[in-house]
C-alpha cells in the first residue's frame, strides 16, 4: 500500500505539471529534433533575425530614453533591451505557473503562508532553470513557447553583461540533459526542490521536511521503475541541487549588476520581489 501511495503522488504531480506548464519536455524535444513536421521554430542568430523574430515574441514596446535618440544607437539599444524586457515578462508568467504547481503539491497550502512565500522566493529560480534544460541543446535554446530557437552563439555575442547570462545555464543544461529525465520524473524533482527545508527564514521547518521526504521516496521509486538501468540516478539528481544553488546565486548577482550599470533597465516588480535580499 505504501508504494501505491507513492505512485499515486507521482501521478498527481505529473498531472499538475501537465496542467500548469504549457511546454513539456516531450514537446520541446520533438521541436528540437525536427519531428513536428512543418511546425519548425524561427531561428534567431543575429540582430537582423532578432528584429524579424520580434513579431513572435510578445514584446512590450518600451520608450527609448532621450540620450539614446541617435538613430543607429536607438535601434540596437531598443532591440536588446526590448528582448530583455520580454524575457522578464515570460519569467514573471513562469513564476505564476510554478506557484500554481506548488499549490498542487499535497500539503503545501496547509503550510504557514509566510513559509509558502519563502519556499517560492528561494525555489522558483532553481525550478525555472531546471525547466529551461529541456528547451536547450548545445547549440541554442527554444524560447517563446517553442516558437523560436535562439542560438547560443548569438546570446554569447550580446554586449556585456547580457552575454554572460545564459552561458552558465547552457553548461548546466547540457550535463543535466544527459540524465534523460522525462516529464513525469521532472514533476517530482521540481516538487523536491520547492520543498527544501533549509531555506533562510523558514518558521516551521518540520512539516516541510516531512512533505519533502514523502516526495523524495516517490521520486526514488519513480526513477527505479522508469530508469531501471540508470545506476545511481537518484543520487546524481540530488547532487544537481548543489550546482543549482550556485547558478542562482551567480544569476542574482548578474541581475544586481545589470540594475547598477543599465540605468534605463526596469526590473519586473514580481522578479524584484523575489530577488530582493535573496543571496
Amino acid at each position: 500500500p505504501e508504494a501505491a501511495d507513492l505512485r499515486a503522488l507521482a501521478r498527481h504531480l505529473y498531472e499538475a505539471y501537465l496542467k500548469y506548464f504549457p511546454l513539456t519536455k516531450a514537446k520541446a524535444r520533438a521541436i528540437l529534433s525536427g519531428k513536428t513536421g512543418d511546425n519548425v521554430p524561427f531561428v534567431i542568430h543575429d540582430m537582423k533575425s532578432l528584429m524579424e523574430g520580434e513579431q513572435f515574441i510578445n514584446c512590450k514596446q518600451i520608450p527609448v530614453p532621450e540620450h539614446h535618440q541617435q538613430q543607429h544607437i536607438k535601434l540596437l539599444y531598443a532591440v536588446e533591451l526590448r528582448f530583455f524586457q520580454s524575457c522578464q515578462s515570460r519569467s514573471a508568467e513562469a513564476v505564476r505557473e510554478v506557484t500554481e504547481f506548488a499549490k498542487s503539491i499535497p500539503g503545501f497550502v496547509d503550510l504557514d503562508l509566510n513559509d509558502q512565500v519563502t519556499l517560492l522566493k528561494y525555489g522558483v529560480i532553481e525550478v525555472l532553470i531546471i525547466m529551461m534544460s529541456p528547451l536547450m541543446n548545445k547549440d541554442g535554446t527554444l524560447i517563446s513557447y517553442g516558437q523560436i530557437f535562439m542560438t547560443r552563439e548569438f546570446l554569447k555575442s550580446l554586449r556585456k553583461p547580457f552575454c554572460q547570462m545564459m552561458e552558465p545555464k547552457f553548461e548546466f543544461s547540457v550535463k543535466f540533459n544527459t540524465l534523460e529525465l522525462d516529464d513525469s520524473d521532472m514533476a517530482l524533482f521540481l516538487a523536491v526542490i520547492i520543498l527544501s527545508g533549509d531555506r533562510p527564514g523558514l518558521l516551521n521547518v518540520k512539516p516541510i521536511e516531512q512533505l519533502q521526504e514523502t516526495v523524495l521516496h516517490s521520486l526514488e521509486l519513480q526513477l527505479k521503475l522508469n530508469h531501471p538501468d540508470s545506476l545511481q540516478l537518484f543520487a546524481k539528481l540530488l547532487q544537481k541541487m548543489t550546482d543549482l544553488r550556485q547558478i542562482v546565486t551567480d544569476h542574482v548577482h548578474l541581475i544586481q549588476l545589470l540594475k547598477k550599470t543599465e540605468i534605463d533597465m526596469c526590473l519586473h516588480p514580481l522578479l524584484q520581489e523575489i530577488m530582493k535580499d535573496l543571496y
Binding site: S89, A92, E93, V95, R96, T99, E100, K103, V109, L113, N114, Q116, V117, L120, K121, H268, P269, L270, E273, I274, K276
Partner: peptide, 20 residues
Amino acid sequence: KEKHKILHQLLQNSTSPVDL
C-alpha cells in the same frame, strides 16, 4: 508581508490573475 505582496497574492488567489 508588504515585501512580498505579489507572491502573497499569487498564493492566495487561485483564479484572479495578478497583473503581470
